[in-house]
Amino acid sequence: MSTNAYIKYLTQQLVEYFNLTKKERKEKRRHRKEDNNTSVLSHWFGIVPFALSMFVRKKIKKRKQMS
């Protein structure tokens, strides 16, 4: 993307944002927060924490079955 196209895009986004009422901006922000259900660990580190937690749970479950 060229610099001019990027500046044009940013300008359009700013104009659209400022044309919204305060109530619309708050509603849009609230809606965006509701849609984001990913955990902080997954957001920052991807699937690695999830995979590690599954691995640990599996090991714990095996140890309980052996006892």
Rank of each mutant, 00 (worst) to 15 (best):
M1K: 09
M1E: 05
T3F: 09
T3P: 06
N4H: 07
N4I: 15
N4T: 15
A5V: 07
A5F: 06
A5G: 01
A5H: 03
Y6D: 12
Y6F: 06
Y6E: 14
K8R: 08
K8D: 07
K8A: 10
L10Y: 02
T11D: 12
Q12S: 14
Q12L: 07
Q13W: 03
Q13H: 06
Q13F: 03
Q13P: 13
V15L: 07
V15A: 03
E16T: 09
E16F: 06
Y17H: 14
F18E: 07
F18D: 13
N19L: 10
L20Y: 01
L20N: 15
K22I: 12
K22Q: 15
K23F: 00
K23A: 02
E24W: 11
R25L: 01
R25D: 06
K26F: 04
K26A: 10
K28L: 06
K28W: 00
R29K: 11
R30A: 14
R32W: 03
R32Y: 05
K33W: 01
K33I: 06
E34V: 08
E34T: 10
E34C: 07
D35Y: 09
D35N: 15
D35G: 15
N36C: 09
N36L: 03
N36Q: 10
N36H: 10
N37H: 14
S39P: 02
V40N: 13
V40D: 11
V40H: 02
V40W: 05
V40P: 03
L41G: 14
L41R: 00
L41W: 04
S42Q: 15
H43P: 00
W44V: 02
F45N: 03
G46W: 00
G46S: 05
G46F: 01
V48L: 14
V48A: 05
V48S: 04
V48H: 05
V48F: 07
P49L: 03
F50Q: 05
F50I: 10
F50N: 03
L52T: 05
S53H: 01
S53E: 12
M54I: 10
M54H: 04
M54G: 05
M54T: 09
F55L: 15
V56F: 08
R57N: 12
R57F: 13
K58V: 08
K58T: 05
K59W: 08
K59M: 08
K59N: 02
I60H: 04
I60K: 15
K61Y: 08
K62C: 07
K62H: 12
K62Y: 11
K62W: 10
K64T: 02
Q65P: 11
Q65E: 12
M66Y: 04
M66S: 12
M66P: 05
S67V: 14
